[in-house]
Each structure stands twice: as C-alpha cells, then as structure tokens.
Simulated scan of single mutants.
Amino acid sequence: MSAEPAESGDDTSAVVGLTTGALARRLGVSPTTLRSWDRRYGLGPAVRSQGRHRRWGPRDIAMAEEMCRLTATGAPPAEAARVARLRFGTAGPATPAAASGAASAAAYRPGGAGSGLPLGDVRQECRGLARAAVRLDAPELEQRLVEAVGRYGLVRTWEELMVPTLRAVGRKWESSGDRYVEVEHLLSWHISSTLRSVPLLLPRTAPPAGAPPVVLACTPGEQHTLPLEALTAALGARGVPTRTLGAAVPAEALLACVRRTGPVAAVLWSQTRSTASTPLARHVAGLEWGPSGARRRPVVLPAGPGWDRRAGAGFPHCSGLRDAVETLSGLYGDEGGVGHTHTG
C-alpha cells in the first residue's frame, strides 16, 4: 500500500496514508520504534483517522525517512529528529534554523548519501537489522534477531541475515578509518546472545544416551568465535552433544580435551591463514584411545576461510553452516552409534 497525496496542498487534510505497520515495513524498522519517535521527539503522523488510528501522509513519511537516514549515518536520534522536523515538518523554503540544523547534522554524515552499510542484494529483514545496528538500538536488534530465528530457523537466519550484516559492518569498518567499531561490537554481542538462547527459542532434540560429543575450538591465536557459536547452537538443535572451548585455544588444552572426552569429531575454526595450523589438525587426527584392537580416532573438520586447499588437504571440507551440521550429524547412527574412525 502506498501513501496517497492529499487533495489540497495541505497534508493535514489527508485522511489516507500508510499505517504505522506498513511504514515500519517500508523503512525496515519496528512499529515500536516509530511510536517511540512520535512519543519522544514528536516525529509522528500529523493526522489520525477516526478512532485515533495513525495515518502517515507524504510529509510524515518524508520526515521518518530522513530520521532513518540521519541516524544510520551516526547522528544522535534527538538531533536527527530536530533536523527532520525542520526540513519536512513545515511547508515553504528552509528557514535559517533549518539550515543551521542541516549543518549540524552534516557533521554526522561522513559519507553523504552513500554512507550506509554496503549490504548489496539482501533480504529486507537484513536491512532493518543493519539500520538498528548503526543506530545502536539494542532492543530493536534483540527483537529482530529473536523474531528471525523463530520465523526462519537458526541456519537460515545465520546465512541470510546475521552473516551479511556482519560482513557489511566489517567492510564499513575497514573503509572508514576504524569508525563503526561500536556498531560491530554491539551487533556481535546480540548475535552471540541470540545464538546462546536458541535452546529456549527452538525445539530441541535430546542427545543420544552416552554418545560422545563434537569438540569445537578456535585454533591458537584465533579470536573469532561467532561461527563456532552458530555451529554449536545448530548441532544442539539436532541433538548432537558438543563441547565448545571458544577463542584462541592453546594446542595443549585442545589435545587434553580430545583425550578426555573421546569425541566423534573435532572442529577447528580459523578465520585467517595465519591461525590455520595443519600440523595441529594432523596431531588431533592422530590421537587414539580405547582398548587394543578397537582403537578410535576423531574426525577432524578444519573450518573457516583460514583453511585454504593446501592447509586443509586430506581433511573433510564443508562449504558452510548447513553443510557442517549435516556432515557432523551424519557421524551419529540411528540408535546413538557413532561413526568413529577405527584402527587395527
């Protein structure tokens, strides 16, 4: 549904326009955010229909769009709302106050009209998530992430919403002289919180009784844990027991964990080539336990962009989260048995 212009030049006579929900979908924000802007900054529809329902006319929509644009470039919400009202709240040429407000807001527009996150061709929900991240709107981030997991499931949300937004923030960070660091940190925090909440958000299959786990660890020196957290959550939803060690696991600690837990597999995450250690992967793959004649070894799965063809040669390869979940789940038999590698 699109906004229809008023019959006269005065927008206050318009009775047909966008509902709050329709405008929220158009802008990629939540209806709660629009109501908050109206309550806090007076940035709301000038006209309400019978029954006090909000109807956003063309000028109201322009103000909301300007609010989104300014906050997405780093302007404080109160300042962005003031400038948006000055520009679109009254008809006629810009006043000196409006010009002053525009100059003030310009200080928060380092990249001009193109300073938003470089998302490319993504889902509309991804754009809404990005806007909330740039605005540092923590409640909006949390709500959008939880709703997405409930609607699309974890794997699809990770691949189509979380990862594209994280990559866009990373590209913006690299190209803007270390600005937007706070955006990346806030977004990563809320994605991590959502991943850890998956057992409360989605149905969960009970692990097979007595089944050995999958060990997940970042290689020594590797600090990027979100992909491992996503894999841990996805495996848990499939009933696969896990032991996740987190960031920068020392080699000795990883080897000790494998010896003590006897895992069906060990996932070694590396984000960069400098942290991908082929000797460590081979050492883990060579560990054995169990009685003589029935010795067992773990399947080692090098994961992440740090493992190129050379570093990951001789090991299984997975193209993404969905593939890794299927590969690791497939190591468990129908009755809880596990496809360990046996040696004589």
Rank of each mutant, 00 (worst) to 15 (best):
A138H: 02
P139F: 05
P139A: 06
P139S: 05
E140T: 12
L141N: 02
L141I: 06
E142S: 13
E142R: 13
Q143Y: 04
R144S: 11
L145A: 04
V146K: 07
V146A: 09
E147I: 02
A148C: 05
A148R: 09
V149D: 01
G153I: 05
L154G: 06
V155E: 15
R156Y: 10
W158I: 05
E159V: 15
E159W: 06
M162W: 11
M162K: 01
V163I: 12
V163H: 06
P164R: 07
P164N: 06
V169C: 13
V169Q: 05
V169L: 15
R171G: 05
R171A: 15
K172Y: 11
W173Y: 14
S176A: 14
S176W: 02
Y180F: 14
Y180S: 11
E182H: 12
E182G: 12
V183K: 00
V183T: 13
V183E: 07
E184G: 13
L186C: 10
L186K: 04
L186Y: 08
L186N: 04
S188I: 06
W189R: 15
H190W: 11
S193T: 14
S193G: 14
S193N: 13
T194H: 04
L195S: 05
L195E: 02
L195K: 02
R196Y: 11
R196P: 01
V198S: 06
P199K: 00
P199I: 00
L200I: 00
L200N: 00
L200R: 00
L201M: 06
L201W: 01
L202P: 02
T205K: 13
T205I: 13
T205E: 14
P207T: 10
P207C: 12
P207E: 07
P208L: 07
P208R: 07
P208N: 10
A209I: 12
G210M: 08
A211Y: 08
P213F: 09
L216V: 06
A217N: 07
C218D: 09
C218A: 15
C218T: 04
P220A: 07
P220M: 05
E222F: 03
E222Y: 09
Q223P: 02
Q223T: 15
H224K: 07
T225A: 09
L226I: 15
L226T: 10
E229V: 00
E229M: 12
A230R: 00
L231K: 02
T232E: 14
A233D: 01
A233V: 00
A234C: 02
A237W: 01
R238M: 13
G239R: 03
G239V: 03
V240Y: 04
T242C: 10
T242A: 01
T242F: 00
